[in-house]
Design a protein around this nucleic acid. Structure first.
Lengths: 172, 172
DNA sequence: TCTGATGTTTACGTTCACGTAAGATTTGGA
DNA sequence: TCCAAATCTTACGTGAACGTAAACATCAGA
């Protein structure tokens, strides 16, 4: 017979806000704030004053939110837009779980989901591209510096006995 | 005989703060602020009250600063640290231009420059890596969604006459 | 030389993304 | 049942990164 009251290690059940904060490396205040601005859904039926409770799924969601924020450098407002998409995807997944949707509507939902992912991908790709370019440029100038050092060493080695060389660091 | 007063299109000479702002896509206020916090060097000898003047080299520098800020998501303070490095590199370049340095010191300078670049590269690589991972994950789930749509279409095509298909979008 | 556009300094205002404090309430456990 | 620890709500505080306004001063061109 199943348990009736909340329990740790039970997945669908209940982490408190402090636990969640600890798990994702932030503070309760931040989590409440994210809820306040609409980034995180307010647990619908929480009779005002009661403690917030979270599932592990919600923890994962929060992790993803924070990741996107940090990697893309978006404001919470921009993030919210992107998450409206995520939100919709979740909705889609929920609907798709229940097999009782007409194939036409089903297709519609999947197309939407795809669109949302594409929009995120667009952003990520753009940033990744810019970073890659920067990285390439840095690698390039580093190479130049190394070459100059080698040239210098070569000339000195030809004049004086050899000394210590470059400290190791692969080209990767 | 060379010109004596400032002139546009003369490289070593003088852009005003508004021009610079326009060129890099920011505001005069921001530029003054960056100078105030020490990100941009104050033009040494500007007798207080006179207009700031910038060279094209400084414009490039500012562009780079803004680029790093946006791509790495650093605070101005963190950025300042990284730029102490850049600063040193500039110093190095200046010294290396004047041929009158002992090869030993020369090597020292080059090694320093290399170290600074490596530190920047470290940061950039880390971020680029994380972004790449995120991108891969997104691509993956997108693939899954596409597959499901295809499956759905296949089934429907087997039942009804064919209709419109996926709108084009290469896998890249 | 004069003048309108652009700058300069100083200082207070603003937005974002939380931090912090206070007082009441809730919760899980002894 | 009783209690200490964690939460809740409300509200004001804060640091970073500029925006904006005011009262001059400079600059480039006519």
């Amino acid at each position: 017979m199943p348990r009736k009251r909340p329990d740790k290690s039970d997945d669908d059940a209940s982490l408190r806000i402090g636990d969640v904060a600890g798990l994702v490396g932030t503070t309760p205040r931040t989590i409440r704030y994210y809820e306040e601005v609409g980034l995180l859904a307010e647990g619908a039926a929480r009779p005002a004053g009661r403690h917030r409770l979270y599932t592990h799924a919600e923890v994962e969601r929060l992790r993803e939110v924070i990741r996107l924020k940090e990697l893309l450098g978006l404001t919470l407002e921009e993030l919210k837009e992107l998450l409206a998409a995520e939100e919709a995807r979740a909705e889609v997944r929920a609907q798709l779980q229940r097999e009782d949707v007409a194939p036409g509507h089903r297709r519609e939902l999947l197309l939407q989901a795809g669109g949302h992912i594409d929009r995120q991908l667009e952003l990520v790709r753009k940033r990744a591209g810019e970073l890659a370019k920067l990285q390439a440029e840095l690698c390039d100038t580093r190479k130049r510096v190394r070459r100059r050092i080698r040239e210098l060493d070569a000339h000195r080695d030809a004049t004086f006995p050899p000394a210590q060389t470059l400290e190791g660091a692969g080209e990767r």
